[in-house]
Design a protein around this nucleic acid. Structure first.
Lengths: 193, 193
DNA sequence: GTCTATAGCGGGATAGAC
DNA sequence: GTCTATCCCGCTATAGAC
């Protein structure tokens, strides 16, 4: 498998860009912003990522790999545990107070993104939805999840609720409202909760 | 009650700005964009809204009035009918395919907005949540809604799910996924659905 | 109220030295 | 790989004529 070279500077740039993407959105940070936090001049960033679109695609690629990695780390667990692990990961996002999930940011900015990023994002999003639907099917088969509508519908609800919940939690100044969402989702999924 | 003068041009500017806010976000449209659609020069827009922050605040003020108006139009209906009316309004947003709700846009762009807009948005958002919670309480009292967690938690879930659902529906290119969300929400709220 | 003209800034991006 | 210097563009905003 081809792997993009992961120099230290390149990684640092991606780290900083990811953080700003999550707090401000893709269009609201600049090469100048990155350069200040990384400690190199903005022209140097163009060496690693010629255009901002390249940077955005690299971010999406890395997100994809991170998610895959995370999923393979919990794949042996039970459906209930996998769902709880997913909730926990969600709560970690909000713990840095200003962050929200990539899905929400790009879902909102969607029509302002370069076409290649739109396509990459669609695939990225589809993977999440399929993963969720699969977990739900397994849980239903094992009798630990409620049968409420199709697994696909339920997966969409969960993804949507978490995505919106993160936004509400951070923009209302009440981070605990994400917990409200997770409580409700849990009740709607788990048998005898 | 003080009413900002609503000249025709001013209204037209707000209409165009609202549309672009919903499709692209607050930071991703310019006075130039507005001027092209309204048919006047961009300098003229500054006569009506000296700064972009003024324009943003005017938009939020109008949203508030619109919502109030809408709510007073359904206030006599039953909780179930009010909730259905709310769902229907949501579906109307997505019918123009590229639009999403203001809550989602500003929730995402939150930390890039001028402080006055952040405050105005918080209040705007709080009103929606209180409205939803009140409907849920009434429905429970009348025995037509399920008692799942607190009304506040459930209101947050519904708001979050719809907000996220609109984003997923439009960025996945499958507008019907909003329907999935609404189906699931309906099932989680209505008794014997 | 709308216009032309322009200031002033910050954005993405490139050239070429080191 | 990183630097300085620079280009071109679009943005918000203002000045002043009409």
């Amino acid at each position: 498998m081809m792997m993009a070279t992961a120099s230290k500077t390149r990684t640092k740039i991606l780290d900083v860009a990811e953080d700003m993407l999550r707090t401000r959105g893709f269009n609201a940070f600049s090469y100048q912003d990155i350069s200040e936090q990384v400690g190199i001049r903005k022209a140097s960033i163009h060496y690693h990522f010629p255009t901002k679109e390249d940077l955005g695609l690299a971010l999406l690629e890395r997100f994809g790999a991170d998610v895959k990695n995370w999923a393979s780390g919990v794949v042996e667990k039970s459906p209930t545990e996998q769902l709880e692990a997913y909730f926990e990961m969600t709560e970690n996002i909000i713990s840095s107070t200003t962050n929200i999930c990539v899905y929400g940011v790009m879902g909102t900015e969607f029509w302002t993104l370069p076409e290649a990023m739109q396509e990459a994002f669609k695939k990225f999003q589809r993977r999440r939805d399929r993963w969720l639907a699969k977990i739900l099917e397994e849980g239903r088969a094992q009798g630990v999840f409620k049968e409420v509508g199709t697994p696909e519908d339920q997966a969409t609800l969960i993804a949507a609720a978490i995505q919106g919940g993160l936004q509400i939690a951070r923009s209302s100044g009440e981070p605990d409202r994400l917990k409200s969402v997770l409580r409700q989702v849990r009740e709607s999924v788990l048998v005898d909760s």
